[in-house]
């Protein structure tokens, strides 16, 4: 099949970008979206042009590296899917496809579709961990954790840090990302000890990175490849409010 692409091209952080048009022929519906871009890049090389830069790595939906706005939607038209798992059978022959990077003030564009998501790392650094140094751990079965609790913690821990939640949010809020981590850790007995300190630090860091606040439009849950529930945002708020009230 044949597609008309309009792709965001930008030299570096400082420069202004623009949409550039490409026509790609000979696309098979079995290709993944990224393989379609590979195909285009291969042809750009043949023409002596600079390839379209995009982040990608595992190509099986788990590393969280890939991510772009495709036709105005984070990770493309399907819900709960990463860009690498999107296949060309989701597009029609002759369609025009707009491809842009995830946009947010906290996600500056490095080049073309590559963005800097280190804000997420900084949020985790501010407290998204359990302080258990190697060697301190007790026997693993000494603290039983209910099956449902573990499963609930897993649901939150499943976040792959791709940034689609921020990209699709009208406020560029990182609330789903941050709350998923807070939920994951606070649900487990091991993570409860540091809960109050953690939530205050992480929420503050979210602001410091320049992410907006959450206005509960719930778009993030729809676009999240791991379908992480917005209720975690509720739990983050609960933890935050509790910490504010109980703070000495």
């Amino acid at each position: 099949m044949k597609l008309y692409l309009k792709v965001w091209r930008q030299e570096n952080r400082e420069s202004k970008g623009d949409m550039v048009s490409y026509v790609v022929e000979g696309i098979s519906e079995h290709m993944s979206f990224l393989e379609m871009l590979d195909l285009l890049n291969e042809r750009l090389i043949q023409k002596g042009e600079r390839v379209i830069e995009f982040d990608h790595d595992c190509r099986e939906g788990i590393c969280g590296a890939c991510g772009m706005m495709i036709n105005g939607r984070a990770h493309g038209p399907l819900s709960g899917t990463t860009t690498c798992q999107l296949h060309m059978r989701s597009f029609k022959d002759g369609e025009t496809v707009y491809i842009e990077p995830f946009r947010a003030a906290a996600f500056p564009v490095l080049r073309d579709l590559k963005i800097d998501r280190s804000g997420f790392d900084h949020i985790i650094q501010s407290g998204g961990y359990i302080s258990a140094s190697t060697g301190q751990a007790p026997e693993s079965n000494s603290i039983p954790i209910a099956h449902e609790t573990t499963e609930a913690a897993f649901d939150a821990a499943a976040c792959i840090g791709c940034g689609a939640c921020v990209a699709t949010c009208k406020n560029s809020s990182a609330a789903l990302f941050t709350s998923a981590k807070i939920s994951h850790l606070v649900l487990l007995p091991q993570g409860k000890l540091e809960a109050a300190d953690r939530v205050i630090k992480m929420v503050s860091q979210m602001d410091a990175e320049g992410f907006g606040h959450c206005s509960n439009t719930e778009a993030c849950e729809v676009e999240c490849p791991q379908e992480i529930s917005v209720l975690h945002i509720g739990r983050m708020n609960y933890q935050y409010n509790k910490a504010l009230i109980l703070k000495k």
Partner: peptide, 27 residues
């Protein structure tokens, strides 16, 4: 908050269909 949000958004999408995944009034 609206001012904070506008700042957080950075640059605008050229082609934006994010509205498909949330209700109009919530946005």
């Amino acid at each position: 908050l609206t001012r904070v949000n506008i700042k957080a958004q950075g640059s605008q999408y050229v082609y934006d269909k994010r509205g498909q995944v949330s209700s109009w009034n919530s946005r």
